[in-house]
Amino acid sequence: MKKVTFIIFFLFISGVSNSFAQSTGATSTKLLIDKKTNCQIRYYYYPNLQAYFDLLKNVFYYQENGSWNISETLPKNYGGYSLYKMNHVSIRDYDDDEPYKNLDTHKKLYPFNFRGTKM
């Protein structure tokens, strides 16, 4: 009976320590710092989507029906857009929690590109 109790206890402890390691690992992301602005390079801006990706939280910020949403994935109406092939821009002058407040500025600095190639 002691062996069974020990095995159950061991499995429980390993599961708890593993889940703790996974949950703390995501928050320890080390972001690069832009030396000119002294901001973390935390966001990618996708000009063709007018959306952002947060490297710290691993979520997208995008507009839908006039309001900003936060999600780990883009909605289906963004389908067909390859995040890896299409262009994105590293935002180097903002590292707060609401990058979409600078959308008008980013639209001017990084205009929509019909070909979708890197800028």
Rank of each mutant, 00 (worst) to 15 (best):
Y84W: 13
I33N: 13
S17D: 09
E72F: 11
T117D: 05
D54K: 00
V89N: 05
S90E: 08
G15K: 00
I70P: 08
V16M: 15
A51E: 00
I70E: 11
V59T: 11
D34Q: 10
K101R: 02
S67A: 09
S28D: 12
S67R: 12
Q63C: 09
S28A: 14
T5C: 12
S17L: 15
G66E: 05
D34A: 02
K36Q: 14
F6E: 06
W68K: 01
I7P: 02
F10R: 06
Y78H: 05
L55K: 08
H88V: 14
V16N: 02
S28L: 04
E64P: 15
A26P: 09
M86G: 07
M1Q: 04
N18V: 09
N69W: 07
A51H: 03
Y44N: 08
L56I: 06
G15C: 02
P99E: 02
Y78I: 11
P75W: 13
K3I: 14
Q40P: 09
H88P: 05
Y62D: 04
G25Q: 12
K118F: 15
Y44Q: 05
L103S: 12
V4G: 05
T37L: 09
F9R: 10
F60P: 02
P47T: 00
F6G: 08
I41E: 01
L74N: 06
Y61A: 01
L83E: 12
D34Y: 03
D54Y: 00
K108L: 09
M119P: 13
L83Q: 10
K85S: 09
T73E: 15
F9K: 08
Y94I: 00
Q22C: 13
D54W: 01
N58I: 01
Y45Q: 01
L109P: 07
I91T: 02
Y61H: 05
F6A: 10
T24I: 04
L55D: 03
K36N: 12
Y81P: 03
N65Q: 05
G80Y: 03
E72G: 15
V16K: 14
K108S: 14
P99H: 05
K36S: 14
E64R: 07
Y100M: 05
I33H: 08
Y46N: 00
V16S: 04
K118L: 15
P99D: 03
F53E: 00
H106S: 09
K76M: 10
K108V: 03
T29V: 06
Y45D: 00
R92L: 03
Q50K: 13
F10V: 10
S71E: 06
T27R: 11
S71L: 03
S19G: 10
E64C: 03
M1E: 12
F6N: 03
T29S: 12
M86A: 08
A21W: 15
A21M: 13
R115S: 15
S19D: 11
E72Y: 11
